[in-house]
């Protein structure tokens, strides 16, 4: 029973990390930028969701509002900030680092903006679905209707994304722009627009991750939320474990990380909360530096 519960805790947390990892991968694939503001954007989107809940009183409105808000904001960041940076800092050693540093700065700006708009105190989002564990053979599992819902939504989003990427022209354009922008441009693809779209999709995925991380926790939301710092770290690590280039890798990386952390906390020590993700990352990088899905499946730009 302990084993099963440990696994269930890991899968739920891991599925949320997967979403966050997907956001990292989408941005990386479309613009070759590691977006450290991803968790900040997710946090902002979650606040959009909070605003929707408090205005309309329904979580079901909050979810799409957070996704659309997150997508629009991410698109805006790409359009205004990233494009400008690429234009101005296009040569020399700074060209590769400037966008990444800029995302770090953006993270700080977003957090301060949230504090100014919503204040520093905790806000609460309560999910309308019960988080009471299912009971099997008289013992209660660490798995509830809410957690089931989270898993189902994550799976649905994954299916939609993979259809989008594998089966549609848009997906082809996304992949082409990432891997060979010049050729894509020559063949008539609007590379810039496609890049913005990549960011927007990432923003939406991050928004869902943020909202779920909040309701799967105690529902409290604050600009300094440690849940979101964890989301940033875990999402990024999951993406790296997955090879940073592959959506499937991001999903597997997230699940692997979630389950691995859960087992370490359960069977090694629960005090390793903040260290475990990094140790797992290092181990994976030592054993398979290319990530779980590395060179073999992923393509190189």
């Amino acid at each position: 029973m302990q084993l099963l519960n440990t696994l269930l805790i890991g899968i739920t947390a891991g599925s949320i990390y997967s979403l966050m990892a997907i956001a990292f991968v989408l941005v990386w694939r479309s613009t070759r930028v590691v977006n450290f503001a991803q968790a900040g954007m997710a946090l902002l989107s979650t606040y959009f969701g909070y605003e929707a809940v408090s205005r309309f009183g329904s979580f079901w409105i909050a979810l799409p509002v957070a996704m659309i808000g997150g997508a629009l904001f991410a698109a805006l960041v790409e359009l205004v900030l990233m494009r400008l940076l690429v234009k101005h800092a296009s040569s020399g050693p700074i060209a590769g680092v400037a966008p990444i540093i800029a995302t770090l700065g953006l993270l700080g700006v977003i957090k301060s903006a949230i504090t100014i708009i919503w204040g520093g105190q905790d806000q609460r989002i309560v999910a309308p679905i019960s988080n009471n564990g299912f009971t099997v053979n008289g013992s209660t599992l660490v798995f509830s209707p809410l957690k089931l819902f989270i898993l189902v939504v994550v799976v649905i989003l994954l299916i939609i994304l993979s259809i989008l990427f594998q089966k549609t022209n848009l997906g082809l354009a996304l992949r082409a722009s990432a891997h060979a922008p010049e050729i894509a441009r020559l063949s008539g693809i609007k590379v810039d627009a496609v890049r913005t779209l990549g960011w927007a999709l990432a923003g939406a995925a991050g928004a869902v991750a943020g909202l779920f991380q909040t309701v799967n926790g105690n529902g409290n939301l604050s600009p300094d939320s440690s849940e979101f710092s964890l989301l940033l770290v875990s999402g990024f690590i999951a993406a790296v474990i997955g090879g940073l280039d592959s959506l499937l890798g991001a999903v597997l990386g997230g699940l692997f990380l979630g389950i691995a952390i859960s087992f370490v906390l359960m069977y090694v020590s629960s005090g390793l909360f903040f260290i475990a993700p990094f140790v797992i990352l290092l181990l994976v990088l030592f054993i398979r530096p290319q990530g779980i899905i590395g060179v073999k499946v992923g393509r190189r730009a």
Partner: peptide, 15 residues
Amino acid sequence: ASGSQGAAAAAGWIT
């Protein structure tokens, strides 16, 4: 660890 006391972590403690 101080700062890690969320509901998600508590599920593990209870287990």
